[in-house]
């Protein structure tokens, strides 16, 4: 039975938890799989280390934590340093390439970067960098389907911001598809 452990790390205010919610919702409500989200954050509302752990599986999820993720998504340098040792030996790293420099990358790890903040700024709001990352995740991994991810996205963002978020998602998705050589 397939199971994918995902760790998303960044700073409070970047939308780390929302990214996890969108992925979990896409898998568990719209793709018909099971998903469990665990969140960890410091006492500060903004700027402290923040991370989400998402398990997406065909079978119900028993142990809810992700000790050694299959996929690590990082939006801050600190998150990279903290979580890279936990990534599986043949794991996948997705990173915000202008915020994170993947130093001493373990040899078996595949890594893909995206200038998510720059793309978000081009779209008019830096705030949607997390949605660019969600699209990037969907594009590179295929762990959540495009249709499910877009439905989950639209049901999770504030009214009036749908087209901005959808554009952010699609830019990330297309960037991801092009890096893995998909048509």
């Amino acid at each position: 039975m397939a199971s994918t452990g995902i760790r998303i790390g960044g700073l409070g205010g970047q939308g780390v938890i929302l990214s996890g919610i969108i992925l979990g919702k896409a898998a568990s409500i719209f793709d018909g799989k099971n998903a469990t989200l665990i969140q960890a954050f410091g006492p500060e509302a903004r700027g402290s280390a923040c991370s989400a752990q998402v398990t997406i599986a065909d079978a119900p999820v028993a142990y809810p934590y992700v000790q050694n993720p299959d996929v690590l998504v990082v939006m801050s340098s600190d998150a990279y340093t903290q979580f890279i040792p936990t990534l599986k030996a043949d794991g996948l790293l997705l990173y915000e390439e202008e915020l994170v420099t993947p130093k001493d990358l373990p040899p078996g790890v595949k890594a893909y970067g995206i200038p998510a903040t720059r793309i978000a700024e081009e779209l008019g709001r830096r705030l949607v960098l997390n949605i660019v990352m969600v699209g990037f995740f969907a594009g590179v991994t295929g762990v959540v389907s495009l249709v499910a991810a877009e439905k989950a996205l639209l049901s999770s963002v504030p009214k009036g911001t749908e087209s901005l978020n959808l554009n952010a998602f699609r830019r990330g998705y297309e960037h991801g598809r092009s890096l893995v050589g998909a048509a």
Binding site: G20, I21, G24, S28, I29, N34, A35, T36, L37, I38, Q39, V61, P64
Partner: peptide, 9 residues
């Protein structure tokens, strides 16, 4: 705390 803050369908 885990059950309280854990998100699922």
């Amino acid at each position: 705390e885990v059950v309280g803050h854990m998100t699922e369908r």
